[in-house]
Design a protein around this nucleic acid. Structure first.
Length: 307
DNA sequence: AAAACCCCCAACCGCGCAGCT
DNA sequence: GAGCTGCGCGGTTGGGGGTTT
């Protein structure tokens, strides 16, 4: 059975929006709010498909939208996020306040994609403020694909960390028992334990005291997300339903990465990233600094991935 | 000056997921 | 569980402006 079209195409305007149509749509949404896109055109008196209205609003008319002039920092971030997330434009855009997925996608297709492909990903040339610390290896095209997340079939919003059986792609990470024990000892005795004492759960999510937001980033890295989880998870087919849970208590009990099923602890999930953006970009004035801090985070992660 | 070509990006399209009945 | 709707996502298209010949 075929899916019914979102609307009848007959009698509808297509192509570029006129200023008048924009005005109608803007006014309608100002009064009635977003949503109910299918009925919106009829109610608003627009000869447009609902999807078209939604797209126009989200990509062009929304008041908080920032258009054009993508800064070197933003460009840098897009490249790094794309390396980690692949073509998940909405996620990438979510890390760039005021930017839309469509704009990021277009910018990538017309500028960055070529740059990266040509190996000129150090972008604007005059971007000397934030030189890439580990230029070629992690950004070379062949490695790009190795960290792309394929989410077409399965949208992964939560990650669980379980112990055996490990994902086949992770097996080389579990080398020998001696290495495991050494790693375990490092985890238990290292920075993690100290930080765990200040770690709380918020709705099943890891949360940190405000003054330790920075530490929380370090924690993610020290907690071997880069070495063990992130690269493989980003490379995993989540439909394989390998669930992983990082049980903090078990870590403290020398049962690192033990099976745990009740509360997922997403380490690098969409929610975590969204939350990060929300917290760090809420204040526009600090957006630039936060952009840098996020880039630093990605740099750290990339270093781990490159090891 | 104008034809040909190139490039950008707004808009379109089809599909998948979530939620509801 | 099936069917339907609403919404969001990512790939693709094509109009139009800019550049080259």
């Amino acid at each position: 059975m075929g899916r019914s079209p979102c609307c009848s195409k007959e009698g509808l305007n297509r192509g570029a929006w006129t200023a008048h149509e924009d005005k109608i749509l803007r006014e309608y949404i100002r009064v009635h709010g977003e949503g109910r896109w299918r009925n919106l055109p009829k109610r608003a008196g627009l000869k447009r498909c609902g999807k078209s209205c939604r797209l126009r609003w989200l990509n062009y008319l929304r008041p908080d939208i920032k258009r054009g002039n993508i800064s070197p920092d933003e460009e840098e971030l897009i490249i790094r996020l794309h390396k980690l997330l692949g073509n998940r434009w909405s996620l990438i855009a979510g890390r760039l306040p005021g930017r839309t997925d469509n704009e990021i996608k277009n910018y990538w297709n017309t500028n960055l994609g070529k740059k990266v492909k040509d190996g000129h990903q150090t972008t604007t040339g005059n971007n000397t403020q934030n030189p890439m610390p580990n230029p070629s290896p992690s950004l070379s095209p062949p490695k790009l694909d190795s960290h792309v997340v394929r989410t077409k079939a399965t949208k992964c919003s939560k990650l669980l960390f379980l112990n055996p059986p490990p994902h086949p792609s992770m097996q080389n990470k579990f080398k020998t028992e001696a290495e495991e024990e050494e790693e375990e000892a490092r985890l238990v005795n290292g920075v993690i334990r100290n930080q765990m004492e200040h770690t709380t759960y918020d709705n099943g999510f890891l949360s940190f005291p405000d003054e330790e937001k920075e530490l929380s980033t370090d924690l993610l890295i020290d907690f071997n997300v880069g070495d063990f989880c992130l690269s493989d998870l980003l490379n995993s087919d989540f439909s394989n339903s390998y669930n992983f849970s990082c049980n903090i208590n078990n870590v403290n009990n020398h049962e690192q990465l033990s099976p745990c099923s009740d509360q997922p602890d997403p380490m690098f999930s969409d929610e975590v990233l969204k939350d990060w953006t929300h917290n760090n970009f809420a204040d526009e004035a600090n957006a630039s600094n936060n952009l840098r801090s996020f880039i630093s985070f990605l740099e750290s992660t990339e270093e781990r991935l490159g090891e």
